[in-house]
Design a protein around this nucleic acid. Structure first.
Length: 990
RNA sequence: GCUCAGAUGGUGGAACUGGUAGACACGCAGGACUUAAAAUCCUGUUCCCGUAAACGGAGUGCGGGUUCGAUUCCCGCUCUGAGUACCA
């Protein structure tokens, strides 16, 4: 039979499903291997051809590992809470759960027909209550934990309370809010419960605080920083503004250092690690307190006095170049700095107020665009340099950000370019502090040379100077070495419906956890998915959304938290759920976690670099601290698959200004358009030239050619058309009218009888008509062809446009492979003869190549190698069972359906080849006696010469020089030098 | 601006540690089969010079360098893509 991919694929997909072929064992003598894909959000649009790219790669790897004798866990699920289903609910009233269910069904059907080897018995859905029960449970653990800096790990709040009861707040070194009380055990024990709870909230790893959030009025929700792009929401592109709000936050900053260190232990793409490093943004430096004269703090030793908004005693700055402190000539604080009002003198008040007013009006975008212009205002106040008592002006300027460091900087114009420009602009002094510094035209940030103008540091170098200045500052209590992080705590709440409810109720204005046996806290029904009239989140519409106390005869009811968890909650631990997906006692059993441990290979897009991948590492480290999981890092190896972009097809329409008779659209084939577009008149108006007229006349006759409206102002409108009616850039002209009726009677000006389209690479999207659906490819060529073609397209990690142009080649390859097992009459027929040396050589070449390629994720090159092997074996007329059987196993991770079928036809016992042993590479089959040495002269390859590989370097040289062909090139002269690399090359210098 | 990645035929790409640049595939051209088309098969296909072949020359974004030999290493530049942005 001919290659009937449709029947074969259906048959085997059914077989796998019915037999649970890919069900992973939770215990096995085999080594474990966990291959994970980033689970998709099931959107209404279904899968396009770009989505499966990573899944195909991971599936090939999973299947390969099975053949290599591993117990493979390869699961799939859905990140099914999210905005689109909710937006759809708002528009149509359809419950997001229903929409989600429908979308998942579509996804499942599409995934199934590509033939993935997922263990569907472990499917998870983040929106399902038996899943989000455990998301809520983990939230509760975070609420019940604080970060002990001394132990460098999270510990239970109970332990903290015990400490407070015994010893008060002394001896606690925690990552916590800035303003905490200090109290004795007695004071703590005397506090009311609400007071204690309020204090504890400052320590909890998830906590409430008023924070400035990215509020998106159009979406009615708060967005995370990574969901905002240039002041607009990533989804939908609506404007985003800053707003103060009580919000749940996650104390991820507690883990900043560990998140940074952990990067060195995992095998991730370097650019991705770099993004996380930048996001965490560690900088090492010092904080320095500059005393305000007259406040009393300028007296040495008194600089530890606390500052407050009404009475400024000092200004604290953070700097990475504390060694430049003698070059400080002014101080700049952010316009939002809390001391601005206090520091402003009456004479300067007008200036400062005006400046603040201008700053407030500027949006984030303006501020960015304005980066080059210098602006600022003098407060009228001064601070003293803590080391030499010099009086320094305090300015405000919007280049200093309130949210970073302390919102104040010490300006060193000799070393920092921004400070330099500022000093030049406002005529402030510039003092060089290093002997080799050149500051004539710009700042010089050098660390070379010896210090000058620097008191006790004079003559020291950078290293010694920095140490000396920190020691000095510490000794007088005016500063200390400090590490600063850019990363902020993560906001953990959305004012939305379709998310996990937060398992918290409020009593006397303070949050309390519900009892664990009440989990899951189910998402309530609401009449509309919009905020309430009073502006509360949609959960405010739910009837009876309140907690009823069961203890202590307290019959009161307390309302639950109204916001829901953000999109990243459910995805921050899901890989553990796959280990034990049905467990209703634990998020996953200890046993399962100890067996599967972590993800060995994780494949997904780099767009999650600072979102999902950072939060997941954070939660993992937290769970590790609680001894609930066993590994520090969740994803050992990570690969980013590239994005598949769309490739839009474009037709070129000529529009006539003056077209009274409704002349049909005139469409120019691409190269004619290009020529024609370039032949414009001097006024820039295109004109219809004779060449074009001739083409039209040839195709449509003189009458039509003569009747084209000849106005001078014609415009070209490039129009995108459905890529599915274009093949190899040639438009199927007869189909255009069906797709776009306006072109029903269009006149096509063709080249060589064909209409060629132009193309544009851009996002794959419905509005560009460039979406290619995997279903169509599967229907036309089959899943095996789709799988191999997606891999053949190019390196996995590279972004590339989808182009169906080459798919025929892959399809032909599979047919050719099928044909090797069949005779002229398409009957199955293989021989049992001993394989020839040449056949064995081809086979073992491909065994080695595929092993090497798969291990380094170079799937595109192994597809090429398969083609080479099949071409070679076909040339050898190979239909040898021993060879073909091994070929079937090697190819099966890529094209599983056809291989399963051939495996059965080869007479193997009924069942699957998924667990057959991968053929063993035997190097002796590749050993050659001779090698065709490339002979180069002065590095230019001239000819090949076959020489026995048993000869040594001297003998090779002799053999080469003895060759008559070589002598011809040498023209009788002896070469100056001969380089021989055994088994590689011979090069002669003449 | 900074950080990172990349640039190879008409196209997607290959060349893994410096050693025959362009594998494999698409497209294109020519041919076979066919009444014809589709399908299939065969041949050619980096560019330039040459009627053609032999042969010769150039060639991996640009300019230099190291080397017997550079797509690969080093320096400088251009362009493209991604991330980030007044981070003190």
């Amino acid at each position: 039979m001919d290659y009937q991919f449709k029947d074969i694929e259906q048959k085997w997909q059914q077989f796998w499903a019915q037999n649970g072929t890919f069900k992973a064992e939770d215990k096995s003598a085999k080594p474990k291997y966990y291959v994970l894909d980033m689970f998709p959000y099931p959107s209404g649009a279904g899968l396009h051809v770009g989505h499966p790219l990573g899944y195909i790669a991971s599936d090939i790897f999973a299947r390969y590992k099975r053949l290599k004798g591993f117990n493979v866990l390869h699961p799939m699920g859905y990140d099914s809470f999210g905005l689109p289903a909710e937006q759809y609910a708002i528009q149509t009233g359809q419950h997001p759960a229903v929409t989600t269910e429908d979308n998942i069904a579509t996804y499942r059907r599409q995934l199934d027909q590509i033939g993935f080897s997922f263990d569907w018995s472990r499917e998870v859905r983040t929106s399902s209550p038996d899943y989000y029960k455990w998301t809520q449970w983990i939230f509760m653990q975070l609420f019940n934990s604080w970060y002990n800096k001394d132990a460098n790990k999270a510990e239970s709040i109970a332990k903290l309370v015990a400490h407070f009861e015994q010893e008060g707040s002394a001896g606690i070194n925690a990552v916590c809010d800035e303003e905490i009380l200090s109290f004795t055990a007695g004071e703590w024990n005397a506090m009311s419960n609400p007071k204690q709870q309020a204090e504890l909230l400052k320590y909890r790893l998830t906590y409430l605080r008023e924070s400035t959030v990215n509020w998106c009025p159009a979406l009615g929700t708060v967005l995370a920083n990574d969901e905002v792009k240039d002041g607009f929401s990533e989804r939908g592109g609506y404007p985003v503004e800053q707003k103060k709000m009580m919000q749940w936050s996650m104390r991820i900053t507690a883990y900043a250092e560990r998140l940074l260190q952990g990067l060195d232990t995992i095998d991730w793409p370097e650019p991705l690690k770099e993004m996380q490093r930048n996001w965490i943004g560690k900088s090492t430096g010092a904080s320095v307190k500059f005393p305000v004269p007259g406040s009393g703090s300028e007296v040495r030793g008194a600089a530890h006095a606390t500052g407050n908004a009404n009475h400024a005693t000092y200004i604290e700055v953070f700097t990475t170049r504390v060694d430049t402190i003698f070059g400080v000539t002014f101080l700049v604080i952010a316009p939002e700095h809390e001391l601005v009002a206090t520091l402003t003198t009456p004479e300067q008040k007008a200036d400062i107020d005006a400046y603040i007013a201008v700053t407030k009006k500027k949006s984030e975008l303006d501020r960015m665009a304005d980066a080059k212009t210098v602006s600022g205002a003098f407060t009228g106040s001064y601070v003293l340099n803590p080391l030499n008592g010099e009086k320094i002006q305090i300015w405000i300027a919007d280049y200093v950000l309130a949210g970073y460091g302390t919102g104040a900087v010490m300006a060193v114009p000799s070393g920092d370019q921004r400070d330099y420009l500022f000093a030049k602009h406002f005529n402030l002094p510039i003092v060089p502090i290093l002997d080799i510094q050149n500051i004539e035209t710009e700042a010089d940030p050098t660390k070379e040379g010896k210090y000058i103008n620097s008191d006790f540091m004079n003559g020291l170098d950078y290293k010694a100077g920095t140490a000396a200045v920190i020691a000095k500052l510490e000794s007088i209590g005016a500063g200390k070495a400090k590490i600063n992080f850019r990363m902020r705590d993560a906001i953990f709440g959305r004012q939305r419906y379709w998310g996990e409810p937060v398992p918290v109720y409020f009593k006397e204005g303070l949050p309390h956890l519900i009892e664990e046996n009440h989990l899951p806290l189910l998402l309530p029904e609401v009449d509309k998915y919009l905020p309430t009239e009073s502006g509360e989140p949609p959960l405010g519409r739910a009837e009876d959304w309140s907690y009823k106390s069961e203890t202590g005869g307290d019959s009161a009811s307390y309302h639950y938290e109204l916001s829901t968890m953000p999109g990243w909650a459910g995805s921050s631990w899901y890989w553990y759920r796959y280990m034990d997906a049905k467990n209703d006692k634990e998020f996953a059993s200890r046993e399962a976690i100890e067996y599967w441990k972590d993800v060995d290979l994780y494949i997904g897009g780099s767009e999650h670099a600072t979102g999902h991948l950072l939060y997941s590492r954070f939660w993992n480290k937290f769970l590790k601290d609680l001894d609930l999981v066993v590994e520090d890092e969740p994803f050992k190896k990570l690969i980013n698959q590239g994005m598949i972009q769309g490739r839009s097809s474009i037709i070129y329409r000529v529009v006539f200004d003056d077209n009274p008779n409704g002349y049909p659209p005139l469409l120019l084939s691409k190269n004619i358009y290009v020529d024609f577009r370039e032949s414009v008149t001097s006024e820039g108006q295109p004109f219809l030239n004779d060449d074009l007229k001739n083409i039209i006349e040839q195709q449509y006759g003189k009458e039509i050619a003569d009747n084209i409206p000849y106005s001078n102002s014609r415009v070209f409108i490039p129009t995108r058309i459905d890529v599915n009616i274009v093949e190899n850039d040639i438009l199927k002209t007869e189909k255009l009218g069906l797709h776009l009726p306006e072109f029903k009677d269009a006149i096509f000006v063709k080249e060589n009888g064909k209409y060629y389209c132009g193309h544009e690479v851009e996002k794959m999207s419905k509005r560009y008509f460039n979406v290619v659906n995997p279903d169509d490819i599967v229907t036309r060529y089959g899943a095996d062809t789709l799988r191999m073609y997606e891999m053949f397209l190019g390196p996995l990690e590279q972004s590339k446009p989808w182009n169906t142009n080459g798919i025929e080649g892959v399809f032909k390859f599979l047919r050719k492979f099928w044909r090797m097992f069949h005779n002229e009459a398409w009957e199955f027929s293989v021989s049992n003869a001993e394989p020839s040396k040449a056949e064995l050589k081809s086979l073992h070449k491909i065994i080695r190549k595929v092993e090497e390629d798969v291990e380094r994720f170079s799937f595109n090159t192994s597809v090429s190698s398969f083609m080479i092997a099949v071409n070679e074996l076909t040339d050898l007329k190979c239909n040898n069972r021993a060879i073909l059987q091994d070929m079937v196993i090697i190819l099966s991770p890529y094209a599983p359906h056809i291989c399963e079928e051939l495996w059965t036809l080869l007479g193997n016992p009924a069942g699957t080849l998924s667990y057959a042993p991968f053929p063993k590479f035997i190097s002796s089959y590749l050993i050659e006696d001779e090698f065709a040495y490339p002979i180069s002269i002065n590095g230019k390859m001239k000819m090949n010469l076959s020489i026995s590989l048993s000869l040594d370097v001297k003998e090779i040289e002799a053999a080469v020089l003895a060759s008559a062909d070589v002598q011809k090139y040498l023209d009788g002269k002896a070469p100056k030098k001969v380089i021989v690399v055994k088994g590689r090359i011979v090069n002669m210098v003449v």
